[in-house]
Design a binder for these strands. Structure first.
Lengths: 107, 107
DNA sequence: ATATTCGTCAACCAAATGGTTGAATATGCA
DNA sequence: TGCATATTCAACCATTTGGTTGACGAATAT
């Protein structure tokens, strides 16, 4: 039983958290800026960041009063490998994938 | 926002459900046989199968009084592609991966 | 010095999750 | 027919989840 898979998959199951990760692909961000596009309180987003942090999917570093969030893509490796064992997927349609990411961000 | 990603990742977040999927990699199985190795009621396992089913990760076909469960690896495609966008992972250590799958089954 | 900004904490809430048990349904067997 | 097997359903329960608000501490700006 892998606690890592539990926490990583659970973290990825929430659309807000996936949107946050997609945002962080662009650049490191402060907590306040991460929260900005969402229609929920800063405290709620802060909790999401804790969950992403515990799953290892992001790291946070405090500089001054600003806490910077950085994505840690390698934390997905175990989960990604796990999934890949379950099928040989067709090649990626990258255009479709881009559109999909757009939708995720708006979602 | 993708309801599919929500349900697939949520389904994979539970170790019992991942173990079920790993079992189904070997062969299609009846509900009773799926439930056998787990220390929980048949009803509980049945619920897990419903969740896997709704996520599209398995299909179930009733023949006689037996309901057969079949893994549908392609349902992981979208989620797998999503994850892969977040990093270029090092090459897989396949021995480690085998050991990991063993542990999952025992978990 | 004081006000403002950044972020978390604590208490609370509703809804979802993962489990239980016992009854119900449907099929197969003798 | 009558019994056993396969599976789900319904009601229930404890815990977790995802959100809220208001207060708070730490850092910055005026």
């Amino acid at each position: 039983m892998s606690q890592t898979l539990d926490t990583v998959f659970a973290a990825l199951a929430d659309p807000t958290r996936r949107a946050i990760l997609t945002m962080l692909l662009e650049d490191d961000m402060a907590v306040t800026d991460v929260a900005d596009p969402f229609e929920m309180s800063l405290a709620a987003v802060s909790k999401h960041l804790v969950i992403l942090s515990k799953a290892g999917l992001i790291t946070q570093e405090k500089r001054g009063r600003v806490k910077w969030c950085k994505i840690e893509p390698n934390a997905m490796k175990e989960a990604s490998v796990w999934m890949q064992s379950f099928g040989k997927f067709e090649e990626l349609d990258m255009d479709a994938f881009e559109r999909f990411l757009e939708a995720e961000l708006e979602g």
